[in-house]
């Protein structure tokens, strides 16, 4: 039971490994980028789940509620920044893939290596 109680860590770890596998094993550059996105999203989940306080509510001061229990807002703020970083990385990566396609007319890793070797 204890193992399942920490299920959010399992989600994090499994997603992280799925993404990592795709980055390493796939030869298609777009698939690699998809893997990278999954990899990053796993970390977003790690941050988002860590701020949960059991029974905690949104950290907003409300009239009439004395001494409420709040969830921790900081990890959410942090991960908002990290999501922006992730989006920029993916966008830039896709931009580079477009340029690679224009120059090499391929987005398969080994074909590009083959062309460069010539």
């Amino acid at each position: 039971m204890e193992l399942l109680g920490l299920y959010h860590y399992w989600v994090f770890a499994v997603l992280l490994m799925i993404g990592f596998y795709a980055v390493i094993a796939k030869h298609n550059l777009i698939k690699k980028l998809i893997g990278l996105s999954i990899f990053q999203s796993a970390v977003f989940l790690l941050y988002i789940t860590m701020d949960k306080v059991e029974g905690g509510t949104a950290p907003i001061i409300q009239a009439g509620v004395a001494d409420p229990l709040y969830s921790n807002p900081l990890p959410q703020v942090l991960i908002l920044t990290a999501i922006v970083v992730g989006i920029s990385t993916t966008a830039l990566g896709l931009g580079i893939v477009v340029r690679i396609k224009e120059e090499y007319n391929s987005i398969e890793e080994h074909e590009i290596q083959e062309i460069d070797r010539r």
């Binding site: 990592f20 980055v23 990278l36 990899f39 990566g93 460069d116």
Partner: peptide, 30 residues
């Protein structure tokens, strides 16, 4: 044009490096 595949590889590895760093500070923050 050979800079493009090179930079793609750099982007993948650099992002993985930065994400590992992010996991590390996440665990410390926890």
């Amino acid at each position: 044009r050979r800079a493009l595949p090179a930079v793609f590889k750099y982007l993948l590895m650099g992002t993985i490096g930065a994400t590992f760093y992010l996991i590390g500070i996440g665990l410390i923050y926890l």
